[in-house]
């Protein structure tokens, strides 16, 4: 299996011995050894996945990197966070996904209003299987545990990814005060309940709900 390590916090080094990884198209910055870079149409999910992604608008341009040696990945000096998956599922925005083990299955999932409030569309990307994934965030991500009786509320703009058995509930505090410019500033929130981990970044994307 490919060996993921971080060089500093903004460059990912992946050592491969003949196996493959999937990475964001164009994210390779250097490599040694013998590597082949193959653009994956539709994220390597086959015809069905391609159609789903096109319909969902959750476009993801990935490449398959295969060979022997070390390949270095980075993207706009974003912070990189490694996530170890042991059979569970990771939900992440396609734009935050840098690199995954070749053995992880990718797919799309419906997120509902949460995605809409982030300005990311109604769908998100899922990863499933055993292996490592590298996700990007603006500033180092903070990993927060959600347990029964310990729900977590997250600003949609700071949400990066989550794993585990979580239910998401979209909360909107929009009321007449928001309309007259006296809103609470945190009108859109996602509430996570259940058992799992949530990755948040110390920064907020510009969201539709950001200024409300």
């Amino acid at each position: 299996m490919a060996d993921f390590t971080l060089q500093g916090s903004k460059v990912l080094a992946v050592r491969m011995g003949g196996d493959s990884v999937k990475a964001k198209n164009g994210a390779m910055v250097a490599y040694d050894g013998q590597m082949a870079f193959k653009r994956l149409s539709g994220g390597g999910e086959g015809i069905r996945g391609m159609v789903t992604r096109r319909l969902a608008g959750e476009s993801m341009t990935m490449m398959e990197v295969k060979g022997t040696g070390t390949c270095y990945f980075a993207d706009r000096a974003s912070e990189i966070n490694l996530v170890q998956l042991g059979g569970e599922k990771l939900w992440v925005e396609a734009s935050n996904l840098l690199c995954t083990d070749g053995g992880l299955r990718t797919g799309t999932a419906f997120t509902g209003l949460r995605g809409a409030s982030q300005g990311n569309g109604l769908f998100t990307t899922t990863l499933e299987g055993a292996g490592t994934a590298a996700i990007m965030s603006d500033g180092p991500a903070v990993v927060l545990r959600v347990a029964p009786g310990m729900p977590l509320t997250v600003d949609p703009g700071a949400y990066v990814a989550h794993t585990g058995n979580l239910t998401q509930q979209f909360q909107s505090g929009v009321n007449f005060r928001t309309v007259i410019g006296e809103g609470g500033g945190e009108a859109f929130q996602i509430r996570f309940e259940g058992d799992g981990l949530v990755y948040v970044q110390p920064s907020e994307r510009n969201t539709i709900g950001g200024d409300v």
Binding site: L152, T153, A158, G185, V198
Partner: peptide, 20 residues
């Protein structure tokens, strides 16, 4: 707090404009 600087919270919190 200034608007939009909260990224996540545990517990019961409500956020209201100071004009409340």
């Amino acid at each position: 707090l200034q608007k939009g600087k909260m990224i996540a919270y545990y517990g019961q919190l409500s956020f209201d404009g100071v004009g409340h």
